[in-house]
Simulated assay, not measured.
Amino acid sequence: MPILDRFSKTFRLSNELSKEMLAEFYGTFILVSFAVAASAQYVFTDLSSYLTVNFANGMGLVLAIYAAGGVSGASLNPAASIALCLHGFIPWYKYPFYTIAEIAGAFAASAVQYGINYDMLNAYDGGNRTTYGPTATAAVFSTFPNPEVSNLNCFFDQVFGTFVLVICIFAILDKRNSMPIDKGLIPLSMGGIVFAIGTCWAGNCGYAINPARDLGPRLFTAVAGWGLEPFSFRNYGWFWIPIVGPMVGATIGYFVYQLCIEIHWAPEPESTDVVVSANGTKEKPVELTGVDNIAFISSKGRISDILRSDI
């Protein structure tokens, strides 16, 4: 018997939104742990290349979705969550709670990786925490632009990168288009998107394409010795770009996918299923990532059970 079974009644959360927030925190913690650790290896050692950084970011997303997808659907990205809310996959009232949990998970992951890489960090910068210069280390945690690239160029880079991310996400989740037959392949597909984006569009400003993944670590560096520099960089003209750019790109990506692909499918029969959320509001019964997301239970049971009964 697992040792925590005897304490399960004490530790088990009963509120569904609390469970989902914990899952988003946990999943984002895993995602950012891989991302920051890969950057640390790249900067502090000769054991890594930028290709391995991209691979680690992609695999970090894969493992994060496997870890948290069964509870919350593993959005792990406030920009992607906007598109999912627009489509009805996530109810809007959950959006701020998911975002807070994701930023907190990214902050915690940065703190842990700071501790793990503390000695290498000190050996590299001599204890002088800086955002720019030959021994700058803030970029290990959050993204910064190429010195040759303007803020305006970086903004459009973030818009386009997240646009690509979102249209690919919907292509995978759209069961009438290219959803993998085996739902367990969906996390691998999602990780493949991030890996591909990193190999194609990292040069301008590091492909944050996720406000939580960038803001959480940036907040950590601000309180861990770097001061205001991670925010005041380029006269406060940079830090908002990896936050606002992905939000704009995700919104555009959602509408482009709808206008180019999804609205052209033949209408499906209306479902008689009724889904009532924890706060009593009606929600759309959908498959988010092909897992038993507690927010999407129909009157016939869990989505995965219904799918298995049709086979």
Rank of each mutant, 00 (worst) to 15 (best):
M1K: 14
F7E: 13
K9L: 13
T10C: 12
F11C: 10
S18I: 00
E20R: 13
L22D: 00
F25Q: 08
I30V: 15
L31D: 11
V32Y: 05
V32P: 02
F34S: 07
V36Y: 07
A37K: 07
S39M: 11
T45E: 12
L47H: 13
L47A: 14
S48V: 05
S49E: 12
F55T: 10
N57W: 15
L61G: 07
L61T: 01
L63K: 03
A67P: 11
S75E: 06
H87D: 02
F89Y: 12
W92N: 05
K94R: 15
K94H: 12
Y95R: 01
P96E: 14
P96A: 09
F97Y: 13
T99V: 12
T99H: 04
A101V: 03
I103L: 10
A104E: 11
G105T: 06
I116L: 03
N117Y: 14
Y118M: 09
M120V: 02
A123V: 06
Y124V: 06
T131D: 10
P134E: 14
T135E: 09
F141V: 08
T143H: 04
P147D: 06
L152G: 07
Q158E: 15
F160W: 04
I167R: 03
C168H: 11
N177I: 04
S178P: 02
M179A: 15
I181P: 04
D182L: 09
I186T: 12
G192D: 06
I193E: 05
I193Q: 04
I193A: 00
A196I: 04
C200Q: 14
A202Y: 10
A202C: 08
I209K: 04
P211E: 03
P211A: 02
L215N: 03
L215P: 01
R218L: 03
R218C: 02
V223I: 15
A224W: 05
E229A: 01
F231K: 03
F233L: 09
R234K: 09
N235L: 00
G253I: 03
Y254L: 03
F255W: 08
L259T: 03
A266I: 07
P267I: 06
V274S: 10
V274R: 09
T281V: 13
T289A: 08
T289P: 00
D292I: 01
I297K: 13
I303W: 14
S304H: 08
S309P: 07
D310A: 13
